[in-house]
């Protein structure tokens, strides 16, 4: 199975190609230049793996949550490539990709969502794979949902920005943190592989971002009632 995965949900561009059992990676701090470098770097990595787009089994992408613009670039690229090369696509939740990238098996994944909030989920890995103990959601860092037990690992940028608040909320339950960890394409590929194997990948138009934050504007009637975002 040959897969291409990409993530543009953070300020990094992360690419991975799995050719049979060999993985090729490319990760770079892209800032706001994802659009300028993603396709040239995909071509570069394909060359390195000695593959053509048409040799791929499918495409996987970090679907979010994350930067709205970033996850839409990934979705747009997944749609364009998937439609043009007739490849199935799998969107992977970036919080689960963080959990996979951590190497741990009990993970509280938090991404800085700006505006004083975090994207949050808690996962436990068992024989069947990752189980979401707490589904992805949007929270204030001082009002995160409780988890059971100890030995959790805290990962992602949320732990960077709100480390103290999260440490207080999960006092005594978190054994270590990896605040600098990113939703890597190499983790996206690992999570996507069983979905391709199960034949559950979808056609390209289903490459749609996961936003979590869905209230982005007030309707006229809501504004008139004095509501705020």
């Amino acid at each position: 199975m040959n897969l291409l995965a990409f993530d543009t949900s953070t300020e990094f561009l992360s690419l991975a190609i799995m050719r049979d059992n060999t993985v090729f990676n490319y990760d770079v701090l892209a800032g706001q230049t994802h659009s300028q470098i993603i396709l040239p770097q995909i071509q570069h990595l394909l060359n390195q793996a000695e593959l053509q787009l048409q040799d791929l089994t499918g495409l996987a992408f970090g679907a979010g949550p994350g930067s709205f613009t970033g996850v839409r670039i990934a979705a747009g690229v997944a749609q364009g490539l998937g439609f043009g090369a007739n490849l199935p696509v799998v969107g992977v939740c970036t919080l689960m990709a963080l959990a996979e990238a951590s190497g741990a098996s009990k993970v509280i994944a938090c991404l800085d969502a700006r505006m004083g909030e975090i994207y949050h989920a808690a996962y436990v890995k068992d024989a069947a794979g990752w189980q979401a103990v707490i589904a992805p959601g949007l929270y204030k860092p001082d009002a995160v949902p409780a988890v059971d037990g100890a030995d959790w690992v805290g990962v992602g940028s949320g732990w960077q920005t709100y480390g103290e608040m999260l440490a207080a909320a999960y006092h005594g339950q978190v054994q270590s943190t990896q605040p600098a960890l990113l939703p890597m394409a190499s983790a996206v590929i690992i999570l996507a592989q069983p979905i391709f194997e199960a034949g559950e990948a979808k056609t390209a138009e289903h490459a749609i971002p996961i936003y979590i934050r869905n209230r982005v504007a007030l309707k006229t009637a809501e504004r008139e009632q004095g509501m705020r975002l």
Partner: peptide, 14 residues
């Protein structure tokens, strides 16, 4: 960016 990323990627694949 939506139209641009879709159009460029489609052109890339073709």
């Amino acid at each position: 960016l939506v139209g641009t990323s879709f159009a460029e990627s489609l052109a890339f694949s073709l």
